[in-house]
Amino acid sequence: MPLYRSWQTSHAHIAIWEITETEDFFAASLGFGSDKKHPKRRLEHLSGRFLLQYLVPGFPFDKIQISPLGKPQLADQSLHFSISHSYPYAAVIVSRQQEVGIDIQVYQDKILRLQSKFLSAAEQLICANDMQRITLTWCAKEALFKYYGLGAVDFKEDMPMGSLQRTTPEDALIDMRLEKTRETCQLSGLIQEKFALSYI
């Protein structure tokens, strides 16, 4: 059972899973399967739910609703959660206190070519064409998008990054502004050899 890492913050519990198991393992543990068509997508879908169950035993999967904008949530808001996956990793954050968002991304060369689509000129200077920093910034914007939860956000215009600071060789803090709500947010980042992750 390759739990990659699990930790708690003042408001949430986070876990990362490295997927090496079969689809049958997750389905047997959960008591249900996945309706995704692609085998890899089924693994990602099930591993994310498995992590929810790991963090919150007895998680009420039957009460999950998908919002009109595609965000999975509990109707009674008794628990806030966010799921992300980038094969072979899945990540989950849960909180009983506030809205949350998380994103994990395995490093891919193509992000260097695509950075101008989601990074402003100023943000590109901050990232300095570094794959880890660019990927982490993408994760931070995705996590903030999930935290916001209301869609219709331009990653370049509506989520400007003020700073990205490495606090340790693997930890970072990312300051961003969510223009839709005029909210200044600080996201946490994790930089690993094969992936980056950010959460709020």
Rank of each mutant, 00 (worst) to 15 (best):
D76L: 08
L52A: 09
R166H: 08
G101S: 08
K36R: 15
G48K: 07
K117C: 01
S6Y: 01
S78K: 13
I64G: 02
Q108H: 13
Q115E: 12
R177Y: 00
T135N: 14
A128R: 11
L51H: 03
V94E: 11
S198K: 02
E157N: 06
V153Q: 01
V100D: 00
D24T: 15
Q124G: 10
S86C: 09
F32G: 02
K37D: 06
S163T: 12
I134T: 07
I200G: 02
H80S: 06
I126H: 13
F50W: 15
D76Y: 05
D103F: 06
K117E: 04
F32C: 06
E23Q: 14
Y87F: 13
F25M: 12
N129W: 06
A121F: 04
F145K: 01
G149R: 01
I126Q: 15
T9S: 13
G58T: 14
F145Y: 15
G162P: 03
T22C: 04
H11Q: 14
R96P: 05
S188R: 11
I102H: 11
D62K: 14
G149C: 01
F26C: 06
S78M: 05
K180D: 00
R41G: 01
D62P: 00
E18S: 10
F61H: 15
W7I: 13
C139V: 05
L55V: 13
G58L: 10
I14E: 10
L136G: 04
S34N: 14
W17R: 03
K180Y: 01
T20C: 09
H85N: 11
G151C: 07
D130L: 04
A196W: 05
K117I: 01
R177I: 00
A91Q: 06
C185F: 03
F25S: 08
I93H: 02
R113F: 06
R42Y: 10
T22L: 07
T20E: 15
F50C: 07
M161W: 02
A122V: 11
P169K: 12
V56E: 09
Y199H: 09
I111C: 01
C127L: 09
C139D: 13
R182Y: 00
F118A: 05
E170G: 05
P88T: 15
E123D: 04
S82K: 13
Q65H: 07
I102D: 10
R133K: 15
Q165I: 15
A143S: 14
T184K: 09
G33C: 09
Y199W: 15
S163L: 12
N129Q: 09
K180T: 00
G33M: 09
R42V: 06
A91G: 10
S29N: 14
L114Q: 15
I16Q: 12
A140P: 08
Q165N: 12
Q165V: 14
D109V: 04
A143D: 11
V56N: 00
T135A: 12
S82V: 08
L30R: 13
E18R: 15
G101L: 11
G189W: 10
Y89G: 03
F32P: 00
S198P: 04
G70T: 05
P57R: 15
Q77S: 11
I66M: 04
